[in-house]
Design a binder for these strands. Structure first.
Length: 545
RNA sequence: GCUCUCGUAGCUCAAAUGGAUAGAGCAACAGACUUCUAAUCUGUAGGUUAUAGGUUCGAGUCCUAUCGAGAGCGCCA
């Protein structure tokens, strides 16, 4: 944390004097009595200079303005509390203080939804995690480009077109509902019917080769599907800088393959092209009929981005089951000598129902996201009938976002609407409620002059302020590991501490003007941080609930 | 069969990616509204971190084995 940086350098140079070169790490204290701890000294219990170092630490701690009280334990844990007289500037300029020193350019690839198929609960996590990483990175000063990266190419689309052909369905007037109906039928037919398989493969090959008639049909399907998708996503408060997809790199692939063949990076194997890298299993680049695979288009996409979008990092927000694919992709990028960027698979577990099975509706189909949204709206309306549509809309999206981001992305989790919208508990409703209280309090105070001074009068205030200081740490955790759940949990913590503070005393009836002002200031800082975290999570704060 | 991931309170999940006495929420029980929004707050109870070894000053986290669950494994994306 920036506010503790001077302390870190003092500590480090003290250790340098004894020839110990290591980065000092300040952690949030695990002991209630203290705010922070430094554990670096523990492993030097038997160091020859340990007495000298400890004396130096003691002197340093006594002189340092940011340290209020401290102790060095038997095992050499260094614990301290922070002096809150020196933190007001830091809180005032929070947005500036959390800016990163080295701004990066990041592309977020959502491994997007397939066209022809409506958004379902399986898409929820990719959308939520991606959006959170997007906003959090932007907040700290990275430049971020989001690409929905539609699944608009390959066999699934070819199957739809083939199905329409044999059923005489006129594609240029096709509707979304028809597509929803056709999608499962065509893939079922593909599995069971040999002649249909041949037809679909032929159409896929035609698409790869830009054959006019197939492309025209594909375009109609894509247009209908994308406009529906855009509408649903906008209801769910999602948008993207780029609406590219697998189809956009079709023309890049042919020259790519020619070049790789010439360089002997790929070779024929049973009629298909495989990477010449020694791997088991071998990495398949194209099918034996020459048409393209998932990996082919993803490689093409890498080249497209290198050519057209300046970037340092690409994050693929795609579920864990595709881990193997990304291992192959990243290995191939290296083996093929594509320019080096940082590539990372931000994987996540599946969303299951209460029994731990993949989320499904009673009919057996996967539950559509738009229906989930509507269910949530209805649930909220039932709890409070006075809310307007806009508030219901934002709260529903809060519920669907917050509960999703609360758990570590790596593990599967069980989805339960009742749990998420529970009146009490660690929910999106709770964090919204806390900031609504803060907002109303400031409105009611009619105190336009916010230039008060921070006066800490009790433990609740102290706990809240110290916790507010720690936002920088949690932002750091979330961006470093691409894990939004750190921020989601933190938002609950500060909301709980605020409720504690709020509930403890009637602030507007405090008689001492200075103290009252300070309490409103604390409320203001809470509101600031709460809303910052909400923006990181992709949640819009409501004004009333 | 091979590879990978996971196993933490009755349930759902955290735990600073090796630090001290493993924390939250739900459910349960006991309390707090003449008070700025009680969609709130406080307290109690709940654990041999699947099991057995090992590395380390220090292990839920790293290593090995066993048991259990899930996922992936060249012409789907």
């Amino acid at each position: 944390m920036k506010i503790l940086k001077p302390l870190i350098s003092e500590f480090e140079s003290l250790l340098e004097n004894s020839n110990i070169h290591e980065a000092i790490d300040i952690k949030i204290s695990s002991i209630e009595k203290f705010d922070y701890q430094i554990n670096n000294l523990v492993k030097y219990q038997n160091h020859k200079d340990i007495e000298k170092i400890l004396n130096g630490v003691e002197k340093l701690a006594l002189d340092n303005q940011i340290i209020d009280s401290f102790e060095i334990t038997e095992k050499n844990f260094f614990n301290f509390t922070i002096n809150l007289n020196n933190v007001q500037d830091y809180l005032e300029n929070f947005k500036e203080n959390i800016k990163t020193e080295h701004s990066k350019k990041i592309i977020i690839d959502y491994g997007g939804p397939n066209i022809g198929k409506p958004l379902h609960v399986g898409h929820l996590r990719s959308l939520n995690i991606g959006r959170s990483l997007y906003h959090t990175n932007k907040l700290i000063g990275n430049s971020v480009t989001s690409d929905i990266h539609l699944g608009d190419w390959g066999m699934p689309v070819a199957q739809i077109i083939a199905y329409c052909e044999i059923q005489n369905i006129i594609i240029n007037s096709i509707t979304v509902d028809q597509l929803i109906d056709i999608y499962p039928k065509s893939s079922e037919l593909y599995r069971s019917d040999k002649s249909f398989q041949i037809l679909a493969k032929e159409i896929n090959k035609n698409l790869n080769e830009n054959e006019n008639e197939s492309i025209k049909k594909w375009k109609s399907i894509r247009n209908v599907s994308v406009s529906e998708l855009k509408e649903t996503l906008s209801i769910l408060n999602h948008d993207f800088d780029l609406w590219l997809g697998e189809s956009d790199v079709n023309n890049i692939i042919k020259p790519m393959i020619e070049k790789l063949t010439k360089e002997k990076k790929i070779t024929l194997d049973d009629g298909a092209l495989v990477s010449t890298q020694e791997k088991e299993p071998k990495i398949l680049i194209t099918k034996s009929d020459g048409s393209y695979l998932y990996l082919t288009t993803d490689l093409g996409t890498v080249l497209n981005r290198l050519e057209n979008y300046e970037h340092d990092i690409v994050l693929y927000v795609v579920d864990n089951r595709q881990k193997f694919h990304f291992e192959q992709l990243f290995e191939s990028i290296e083996y093929f000598d594509f320019p080096e960027k940082k590539y990372e698979h931000v994987g996540f577990g599946t969303v299951n129902d209460e029994k731990g099975n993949p989320f499904k509706t009673r009919e057996g189909g996967v539950k559509q996201l738009i229906d989930l949204y509507k269910d949530t709206c209805a649930y909220l309306k039932n709890i409070n009938k006075d809310l307007n549509e806009e508030t219901i809309h934002e709260l529903a999206n809060t519920v669907l976002t917050y509960s999703d981001l609360l758990t570590n992305r790596k593990t599967d989790y069980k989805f339960n609407l009742n749990k998420f919208t529970n009146i009490s508990g660690k929910t999106g409703i709770y964090v919204q409620y806390a900031q609504v209280r803060a907002k109303r309090l400031i409105e009611k105070s009619q105190d336009k002059d916010t230039n008060g001074e921070l006066i800490i009068t009790n433990e609740e205030e102290r706990n809240l302020i110290v916790s507010l200081l720690n936002l920088e740490f949690y932002i750091n955790q979330s961006t470093k590991f691409n894990e939004p759940h750190h921020l989601a949990n933190y938002l609950y913590d500060i909301s709980n501490l605020f409720n504690n503070f709020y509930q403890g005393e009637n602030i507007l009836s405090v008689e001492n003007e200075e103290v009252k002002k300070s309490k409103l200031l604390i409320t203001k800082y809470f509101l600031q941080n709460s809303n910052l975290v909400m923006s990181c999570l992709g949640i819009n704060p409501v004004n009333k609930m």
